Simulated scan of single mutants.
Amino acid sequence: MKKTFKILSLSMVAFMLMTMICGCGDGSNVTSTTGKPGFPDYLSSGTEGDFEYDQYKSYITITKYIGKDVDVTVPDKIKDTPVTTIEDRAFANDSNKSIIHSVTLPNTISNLDTSSFYNSRFLENIQISPDNKSYKSVDGVLYSYDMKQLVGFPENSSITEFTVPEGVTTIDNSRFAFCANLTKLTFPSTLKVVSDFSFHGATGLTELTFPEGMEEIGACAFFRCTGLTKITYPSTIKTIGENSFVGCSNLKTIEGFAGTAAETSATTIGATFVDLTE
């Protein structure tokens, strides 16, 4: 039987002020996983067509798309060197005012930065060569080749209700960030980890229920999810990252099991905690 009680704590307003001081930023401060100039194998930087890039001894990293095309195709080679890596915010529309609707990646891509598609506000579709052995695209959504990681969900996808496929264990950083059209997400029983900023600015989501077996929620995972009213956590949840609920002004209810991270997070933000322990 559910037991509902109000957790007495600091007010939501005080918490929000505190966490804004600590700072979630805008989600773009996720640490880059790609190489930078100064690494031993770095050779030079340049521009080829509509792409800025860094050249290393054996590969090319795309650092920025600077063109104006709606549909963008990334080349498989620059200067006869394979393009293997897409840098953080490479397709962001914050500087060149491009309005990219679709991105097609070549078979040579083997490394996508944690925020490669971050702030691509008009992106509707991500495709990749069927010959690529690192990633695959299903209905415009990008996954690792083994389908265990959800790697890229277009921010302006027309999908409103989405079911993460069974077998996915990890939702990478910022993968549903700014996906305001999403109103409902269903998670697979295999899900274990939701990474930092995963739902940042996904304002259309109102309720989220995570499956039994889920263990970890990253920092600022629900940052500015203003439509979110309720979250349900399983008994297996171990960690809920810092500042996960900054800007969640309508989050009033957290369901979970007494003594877990779910109860702790409810205490922190002053939400109503619903104990699912029978």
Rank of each mutant, 00 (worst) to 15 (best):
6 K>I: 12
10 L>S: 12
11 S>G: 15
20 M>G: 04
22 C>D: 07
29 N>C: 09
32 S>F: 10
46 G>D: 03
47 T>N: 11
51 F>Y: 12
56 Y>F: 15
60 I>H: 00
65 Y>K: 10
69 D>V: 00
72 V>T: 07
76 D>L: 00
76 D>R: 00
77 K>F: 15
78 I>A: 03
78 I>F: 13
88 D>T: 14
91 F>E: 07
92 A>W: 02
93 N>R: 11
94 D>S: 14
100 I>D: 02
101 H>E: 12
101 H>V: 01
102 S>E: 10
104 T>A: 10
105 L>I: 06
106 P>A: 08
111 N>L: 13
113 D>M: 05
116 S>Q: 07
122 F>E: 12
123 L>T: 13
125 N>S: 15
134 S>H: 15
136 K>V: 07
139 D>T: 06
146 D>F: 02
147 M>I: 06
150 L>K: 03
158 S>V: 10
170 T>K: 14
183 T>N: 15
187 F>V: 05
192 K>T: 13
192 K>E: 15
205 L>M: 05
206 T>G: 09
216 E>N: 12
217 I>K: 05
228 L>Y: 02
233 Y>L: 09
237 I>D: 03
244 S>V: 11
250 N>F: 09
255 E>K: 12
256 G>Y: 02
259 G>P: 13
260 T>A: 04
263 E>G: 04
269 I>D: 02
275 D>Q: 01
